[in-house]
């Protein structure tokens, strides 16, 4: 990581700590914001968060590793999560996933070559009355067909 990038990241975290406070209970709010912006939480960010909240970096890592939505390694720029829980499964999740895999030449659990997408399964998204359901970053899509799912992903920048 370049020095300018590091400085920018430090500044970003300082702003978040200023906003949310340096109490330990702010940790997940800060991590959420970093994750949202960078799609992962780089090592250097972990160190800086630990320093500013006055906790050990291992603590920060341990928290990140617990939560499905937080990760330390960079994945694709857009996170695609298809619900794998039973109702969506019965409604055709498999056909959906197969179509996505074919179209983007990449398996679930992996990122596309151009790093545009990372494909994952998710557990019940709370949209079981309108399955099969899929989330792309913070947005959700319902009542999908394989064709519709691919179309939606094609429109993502």
């Amino acid at each position: 990581m370049l020095v300018v990038e590091k400085n920018a990241l430090t500044e970003e975290i300082e702003v978040l700590v200023e906003k949310f406070g340096s109490d330990r209970s702010s940790l997940l709010k800060i991590l959420h914001e970093i994750q949202k912006k960078h799609r992962h939480i780089p090592d250097f960010a972990q160190q800086e968060i630990a320093r500013l909240l006055d906790i050990h970096p291992v603590e920060v890592f341990s928290v990140i590793s617990f939560y499905a939505f937080l990760n330390t390694e960079s994945k694709g720029r857009n996170l695609v999560r298809v619900c794998q829980t039973i109702t969506c499964d019965l409604l055709g999740k498999e056909a959906l996933c197969n179509a996505i895999e074919r179209e983007f030449g990449c398996k679930f659990g992996e990122s596309t070559k151009d790093n545009k997408f990372h494909l994952e399964y998710a557990n019940c998204l709370g949209l079981c009355d309108q399955g099969p359901a899929m989330a792309v970053n913070e947005r959700v899509y319902t009542k999908l067909t394989p064709e519709k799912a691919v179309e939606i992903l094609n429109e993502v920048k």
Binding site: R24, L28, H32, S62, Y67, N123
Partner: peptide, 20 residues
């Protein structure tokens, strides 16, 4: 942040406090 267990009330509180 995507953890079913955090619906359990004491796990939820741990999470609010910034822990696993």
């Amino acid at each position: 942040n995507g953890a079913y267990i955090c619906g359990e009330e004491t796990a939820l509180i741990e999470s609010l406090e910034g822990h696993r």
